[in-house]
Design a protein around this nucleic acid. Structure first.
Lengths: 182, 182
DNA sequence: TTGCCAAACGGAGAGTGTCTCCGTATAGTT
DNA sequence: AACTATACGGAGACACTCTCCGTTTGGCAA
């Protein structure tokens, strides 16, 4: 990639990250991103053929954080319930870090054609590692993608309704208790 | 209201209901509704100043069904868990009856300014009656709006991802067990 | 340094969507 | 039958995503 192209790409992602974080996916227009990055719309679309692919680039850094978080939670010296709740809380917090991300990522969970497919795999794998790590403490038969969807659903609701972050805690506690063996 | 206006209004709602049910909120354009109802866009917007207000009119009939469903579930001769699960299942099924409704209604749950405010109140009240009816079987401190959000979240995920309806059952079971006293 | 050209740029505009304005038509009353 | 408040409908304003293509430029080779 030519140096000017790389510079433009970097600037676009940086501007887009700030805008998406502040206003949410829907409220940001591509023109706005282009103007902010001081490029024409054509240049923006050369780098990112759709708005979602731009969003994907913005979310790029997340995947690594997810695996770190599940490791941290599993290695805690605490009860299964506490470790589970720690992870669910961190997972939900990451999903609500950018407005609109929770619903989009969660909706794409089972769709290999989605631009977020790679991120979805990361999330589901993290939950699978959680299941393996907590082992018999969880109810039998629970699947990683169900956990991903439950927490994603809660995060999406809180995000959409613009609720304070701490309103998630009681709902995550309900989910956690439901996930533990009856 | 003049008779011709009433006829047009009725026809608009009828056409919109069919379109929304078939294609989902986002995929239906107002022009499409206007054409289907054989009125001009101006007429459509005279009756429904925004697309959401049209959606609200389409969902009008639901409120009554919700109260009937919670009564039915509570009066079952069964365990608390079974009655709870019956209601959650019916509630979620109603939310996914129209594509896109679950996320929209659930996002509006705490917002009195929303066009769906009346419906939200109905839903939350139904869950409050559930809490009152199941009494001490539920974990202490659980709130009606939390149940509304949890089930709404699950329904929205299933709806967004176009999953089969029966994929909701295991997630609702987790929520139900989490809601019952630990 | 100079010249070349593939790569990148950017803006006009096509296509689609929501919603408005206002001149025209008509229902219902006197 | 005339009158008027009410309703109609279509042109178009405005916003948004995305495309096409003529113009510019970075980086390499002579």
């Amino acid at each position: 990639m030519r140096a000017d192209a790389q510079r433009n790409r970097d600037r676009i992602v940086e501007v887009a990250r700030a805008l998406f974080r502040a206003k949410g996916f829907d409220a940001v227009s591509m023109d706005e991103v282009a103007k902010g990055a001081e490029v024409g719309p054509g240049t923006l679309y050369r780098h990112f053929p759709t708005k979602e692919s731009l969003y994907d680039a913005v979310l790029e850094a997340w995947a690594g954080k997810v695996n770190a978080a599940v490791d941290r939670a599993l290695s805690l010296d605490a009860s299964a319930r506490e470790r589970l709740l720690t992870w669910l809380t961190e997972y939900a917090a990451m999903l609500t870090e950018h407005k609109g991300a929770a619903a989009r990522i969660t909706a794409a969970l089972g769709d290999p054609g989605s631009p977020f497919a790679a991120k979805c795999t990361t999330y589901v794998n993290a939950n699978q590692r959680l299941i393996d790590g907590l082992d018999s403490a969880l109810r039998p038969g629970v699947e990683a993608i169900q956990i991903s969807r439950l927490v994603g659903g809660v995060a999406a609701v809180v995000d959409n309704s613009e609720l304070p972050a701490d309103s998630m805690a009681p709902m995550l506690a309900i989910v956690a208790d439901g996930l533990l063996a009856p």
